[in-house]
Design a protein around this nucleic acid. Structure first.
Lengths: 214, 214
DNA sequence: GGCGGCCTCATGGATTTCCATAGAATGCGA
DNA sequence: TCGCATTCTATGGAAATCCATGAGGCCGCC
């Protein structure tokens, strides 16, 4: 009953710890892959599965907390820190930087497994969010520069006429752009498009419409 | 040059600590009000200013972390924990629960002041967000039950006709509701209304519109 | 029993959006 | 230089929205 859709990465310089952790995880039906240093972890090509990273704070090549910040630049599995010499400032920094938990040895098997489970759950969430946002961004990149301008004005609430004036083009042209946008973004409605723009953090310009009334 | 638009609350059972903190804060032009227990803090009527709360973990009446969770139910200033016997699990919990920082004695004046400043900045942000959301909610509460139903359907992207059918009323009636909504919510455009609904976490229903594509 | 708020509906016109179709100019890379 | 993407424009009609105005029924509260 080994679950093959998920994996736990272990980065710890102590081989005995790595083995103990691997064993513990296996006994819970959890597949794991261990590394002796941050460098090894980075170099390795890792399966694209639901994952979590158990990271020792003290590593031979780099400080675990520093390493956390480095990989925070890109996509990375949620981190559970473990350490033999845990101090408060480190744990504070780790959690502030998004770590799921910070366990000091000795910790119970149960605590670790709970943290791992939480991390995996979070990864599921992260992935789903990333996937959606990624799809959205891809569609956005499909837009031409002009269409992006139009999109901004439209989701700001401007009437076609107003937006057209703003861009110095005819209303008809703007309509064409607008419909192309709806098409490319696969928006079912203006409301939909506005929500997409929100998630893409597209700023609202002069969100007026009927400023004076009528 | 005492700034009177902000205040730092101190909750610590040790009077010497309270006085030392108050002095330190004062030397930085910061007004403070100190309490000997969580109960005293709760009972006191506190000025509605930009604030931050320096909280000792060990209190006579309740554990600081527990107290944090209690006040987390409602509005409260950002918390900076201080403690004489800081342990990692406590700090982890505190930060997870939203504390700005967790300082163990002895800590430097600079560290505390930095944390206090961060907390005050966060309070400014929190207040601004709360104020906007509050105004939005008040307007939403101004809507009649029917209008709220209509709002949901409209921001879901339904055409007036579709929404009207959904509610079993005529299109004209729905238009009336719709315009009343725009009025009451002070929305400048549909895009605007959609964004408001997002912030109010109004769920989208069957967000279709031209399902098959005419 | 009257008043006010709420929900309902109608008419009708101005305005806007939606859609399909078609043509043309620019500019850039193959 | 040809082809393609991008941008621009137009016509014309269907559909939808916006707006003002008027009005009837229901219900709870004073």
């Amino acid at each position: 009953m080994m679950k093959n859709d998920r994996v736990v990465f272990i980065v710890d310089d102590d081989e005995r710890i790595r083995e103990a952790l691997a064993e513990l995880l296996e006994s819970h039906g959890m597949r794991s892959v261990a590394f002796g240093s941050a460098g090894d972890y980075v170099e390795a090509d890792k399966p694209d599965l639901l994952a979590c990273l158990i990271l020792d704070v003290e590593l031979p090549d780099i400080n675990g907390l520093e390493f956390q910040r480095q990989i925070a630049e890109g996509e990375h599995p949620p981190i559970v820190f473990i350490t033999g010499h845990g101090d408060v400032p480190s744990s504070v920094r780790a959690i502030k930087d998004g770590a799921v938990d910070f366990l000091t040895k000795p910790f119970s098997d149960a605590d670790l497994m709970t943290a791992v489970q939480t991390a995996l759950d979070q990864d599921r969430q992260d992935r789903s969010t990333r996937a959606e946002l990624g799809a959205l961004r891809r569609r956005y990149l499909d837009l031409t520069p002009r269409e992006r301008e139009v999109l901004t004005l439209v989701v700001s609430g401007l009437l076609n006429k107003q937006a057209a004036t703003e861009l110095g083009i005819s209303e008809v042209t703007l309509e064409v752009h607008r419909r192309n946008i709806m098409q490319k973004m696969a928006a079912a409605s203006l409301a939909d498009l506005v929500r997409m723009a929100e998630r893409l953090k597209i700023p609202v310009t002069h969100s007026r419409r009927n400023p004076g009334g009528n």
